[in-house]
Deep mutational scan, measured.
Amino acid sequence: MGFKLLSKLLVYLTASIMAIASPLAFSVDSSGEYPTVSEIPVGEVRLYQIADGVWSHIATQSFDGAVYPSNGLIVRDGDELLLIDTAWGAKNTAALLAEIEKQIGLPVTRAVSTHFHDDRVGGVDVLRAAGVATYASPSTRRLAEVEGNEIPTHSLEGLSSSGDAVRFGPVELFYPGAAHSTDNLIVYVPSASVLYGGCAIYELSRTSAGNVADADLAEWPTSIERIQQHYPEAQFVIPGHGLPGGLDLLKHTTNVVKAHTNRSVVE
C-alpha cells in the first residue's frame, strides 16, 4: 500500500471513529477524501466538511520552486461564519470567499490569524475590503508590521502568557507558548472536538522541520505538551499544512522538532 493511500485511509478511519463516538456532533463529509496538494491548482481553494458547521479550507501556493498546501478553518456561528487564517495570499483568499459563498452561503463576518507569517495573514486586506472584521493577538499584529505583512485590524486580548485561553464565538483560542513562531495560536472547536494546530503542528508525513527561522526550538516541545494537557479530548487535529489526523500529530511534531534540534547540535 502506497504512503499517500495509507495517509488518506488514516484520515478516513479517524473521521469514521469520530462519527461513531459522537453521532450528534459529527456529520463528516462523505463526498470524498481530504484534498491534497496535487489536486488543488494554485489560485483555487477546496472546502472539506469535518463536522456539522465545521470545515477546513485548503489552498496551495508556490514557494521556492515548489507547491505547498495550506489549511485553515471555518466555523459556523449562528447565521454567520468565523474564518481562521487566510488562504495564503490575496488571490487565494478572494477564491476562498467565493467558494464559501458557493458552498455554504453564509457571510464571513470575523477572521482570526493564528500567527504573523504570510500563509496566515496574506489576504487580510481582501477580507477587510469584503467587510470582514480581522483579528490577531497584539504580538501577531506587531510582528506582521515588522515583517511588512498585512496586519489584522483588531487585537485579541488575554493571550499574552503561555497557557492563556479565551473564548471567541464558537471557538476557544489558546496560546501554548512559542513553537513554530513566538505568537502562534491554537484554535479548538469544543462542539466538535476539532483542534486546529496551525503551523505549530505537523502532518504525519512530514519528517523535516522546514521553516524554523522564527521558531523557538527549545520551547516548542513544552508548548505541545500544554496543548495535549489542555485538549486531551480532541479527536480531529488539523495541521497548518497537509493531512489531518488525531492527537498523534502532536507527538510526531515533537519528535521531528527534537530530531532537528539534535542534528543542529551535532553539526
Rank of each mutant, 00 (worst) to 15 (best):
F3S: 08
F3I: 07
K4D: 09
K4S: 10
L5Y: 09
L6V: 14
S7A: 08
S7F: 08
K8G: 07
L9V: 13
V11Y: 07
T14D: 07
A15F: 09
A15Q: 06
S16W: 15
S16Y: 12
M18L: 12
I20E: 15
A21F: 14
L24F: 12
F26A: 11
V28Y: 15
D29Q: 08
S30M: 15
G32C: 06
P35Q: 15
S38N: 07
V42F: 06
E44H: 10
V45F: 02
Y48A: 15
Y48V: 15
A51F: 07
D52K: 10
G53W: 06
G53E: 10
H57T: 05
A59Y: 06
T60D: 03
F63Q: 12
A66I: 15
N71I: 02
N71Y: 04
G72K: 02
L73F: 04
L73Q: 00
I74W: 01
I74F: 05
R76Q: 11
E80M: 08
L83W: 03
A87N: 03
G89Q: 00
A90K: 09
A90S: 11
N92M: 00
N92Q: 06
A94K: 14
L96M: 08
L97Q: 02
E101P: 05
G105P: 07
P107E: 12
V108P: 08
R110L: 10
R110G: 09
A111K: 04
S113T: 05
H115Q: 01
H115T: 00
H117N: 01
D118H: 05
R120M: 02
V121L: 05
V126K: 05
L127A: 03
R128D: 10
R128M: 11
A130K: 12
A133K: 14
T134H: 00
S137R: 08
L143F: 13
E145T: 12
E147Y: 15
E150R: 00
E150F: 02
E150N: 05
E150L: 02
T153H: 13
L156T: 04
E157Y: 14
E157Q: 14
L159K: 02
S160W: 10
S161T: 12
S162L: 10
G163R: 07
G163D: 10
G163N: 10
G163M: 08
V166P: 03
V166W: 07
V166G: 05
F168E: 03
G169E: 05
P170S: 12
E172Q: 09
L173T: 03
G177R: 02
H180M: 01
H180G: 00
S181G: 01
S181I: 00
T182L: 13
T182Q: 14
D183N: 07
L185Y: 02
V189W: 01
V189I: 10
P190D: 11
S191C: 05
S193A: 12
G197P: 06
C199L: 01
I201F: 07
R206K: 15
S208D: 14
N211P: 13
A213P: 12
A213V: 13
D214R: 06
A218M: 14
T222K: 12
T222G: 12
S223F: 04
I224C: 01
E225P: 02
I227M: 10
Q228V: 12
I238R: 00
P239W: 00
P239Y: 03
P244G: 07
G246T: 12
L247T: 14
L250V: 04
H252I: 02
T253A: 03
T254A: 09
T254Q: 10
N262W: 10
